[in-house]
């Protein structure tokens, strides 16, 4: 193979041959296995390098995003509550629930003061778009019964989606199904999802709604300072 072969490859790839020359070149390829092999490599290299170098900037930007997400979700710095600590605190909280029943409280904050849910905005997944927008519409207009129906449907498809689970829990809480709601919050908060502290906050709200103040306080105390719910939790703690 010599330079003129490679020039021919280049001309063929960049479409600079006349139809006559093109036909001639293709015939050569079909009869010369060695030529064909080198041409295939040449072509693959051309595509690969072209894609690599022209997307260098884009790759760098993607890497920046991924590093940020990795730092947040993987090498997280004390953001998510350790499972063991959480379990201990849950035991403490359930003892407190029993005690709490005997504690008389007046002039205490109410659930409604804190039940300002973030609007539901689910990522569109390409399919089931209508169910997504129905769920969003129902939830955001406080039609929790309808929202629960749509979210239950979606949660059966997207089994591992914590966001859908969380909002399902909120609907149940709003509808007064504390037992089911808290089961969902517990599951999320013991997992590694970034929503785990949000789930702890909602379990605390569920306890607040049932006037189990002491248990509620116990839970509020474990919401870490780095969590978005921290300020709300401190505020509620002060009032309890």
């Amino acid at each position: 193979m010599n330079d003129s072969n490679y020039i021919e490859f280049e001309n063929y790839i960049s479409n600079e041959l006349s139809s006559e020359e093109k036909k001639h070149f293709e015939e050569k390829l079909n009869t010369n296995a060695n030529l064909k092999e080198e041409f295939e490599i040449y072509k693959a290299l051309n595509t690969s390098l072209s894609s690599k170098f022209s997307n260098e900037g884009e790759e760098q930007n993607l890497r920046k995003t991924l590093t940020k997400l990795g730092n947040k979700h993987i090498t997280k710095k004390g953001k998510v509550i350790e499972l063991k600590t959480y379990k201990n605190l849950m035991i403490a909280a359930s003892i407190a629930i029993i005690v709490g029943l005997f504690v008389f409280n007046n002039n205490t904050p109410s659930y409604n003061d804190y039940a300002n849910h973030n609007a539901l905005e689910l990522v569109v997944r390409g399919e089931n778009n209508e169910a997504f927008s129905r769920a969003e519409e129902a939830f955001n207009s406080k039609n929790y019964e309808e929202a629960l129906k749509e979210l239950t449907f979606l949660s059966n498809i997207y089994l591992t989606d914590t966001e859908i689970q969380l909002y399902k829990g909120i609907c149940l809480l709003e509808l007064g199904n504390y037992y089911e709601a808290e089961a969902i919050f517990d599951k999320i908060s013991t997992g590694t999802s970034s929503l785990s502290s949000t789930a702890v906050w909602y379990k605390a709200l569920s306890l607040l709604k049932q006037k189990k103040y002491i248990a509620c306080k116990q839970l509020l105390k474990i919401i870490p300072q780095s969590a978005p719910e921290y300020n709300k939790a401190q505020d509620l703690l002060d009032k309890l």
Binding site: K72, H73, I74, V123, T162, S194, L195
Partner: peptide, 13 residues
């Protein structure tokens, strides 16, 4: 990054 964060949330643990 919104959808990518889902990858980290759902699949990386």
């Amino acid at each position: 990054s919104r959808v990518l964060s889902k990858i980290y949330e759902l699949f990386t643990p």
